[in-house]
Amino acid sequence: MLNLIKYEMRKTWKIKAILLVITAVLQVVFLIGLYGENETALGIGTGFLFMTAIVGVAVIGIYSIILLRNDLNTKQSYMLFMTPNNSYKILGAKAIECGLSVWIIGLFFTALGALDGILVLEKFNELDSLFKIIKAMLADIGEFTTPTLFSYAAAMLASALFSIATAFFAVVLSATLLNGKKYNGFISVFVFFAIQILVGYIFNKLPFDLDMVNVAGGLTTAGFYVIPTVIMFFITAWIMDNKLSV
């Protein structure tokens, strides 16, 4: 399993390196703007860093789906499926690599954003104002503590992983049961959205506190999304083990 994860990471390092280089360039632009007192550079750096953070996390998730598609539909699939590993391990390695990447990159951008925010306010000697603003915000949304932050992050991660697990399922469905059928791609995309909407609908009908900005709500949300994610994972791996021909 560790070897599988290692090679999944090897497959994705280029896209991560590109993301890191783009972020580094934008960070330099941001710092030049900040300390060179160039408002244009500061604006460009801030805006594009924010955009890179959001797009970057999404790109990592989408890239893992593209990789699975390539691993099922090209001759490189032999590299995976002739090894003595069952589909649960192969898919599990992909899911773990993707989950870890999304989590670490999300954490990285959150930390970078916090650092840049502090630099801005320090530069303008307004750190005290920052803390006042944060306190005022927290007063509005309730107690914002470290556990709250982590439960919120867990909820976001679980929800993202569910989307990725559903996408894995749709890709595998397309390569197996729908392979060679008319409208194969269209049907698998439809199945993806149908599952997402159905699970979202069930989530909204739950009689629990689902406010993610408190510990109970965050953990409940995370716990909820773990269930369909695990179900999707096992169904997908079972289909791969029993129906996949590469």
């Binding site: 497959k11 590299m79 090894t83």
Partner: peptide, 15 residues
């Protein structure tokens, strides 16, 4: 059986 069966495909398949 995959541990004991070595297969060489006709097409290039390395990453």
């Amino acid at each position: 059986s995959r541990r004991e069966i070595a297969y060489m495909a006709t097409e290039p398949y390395f990453y």
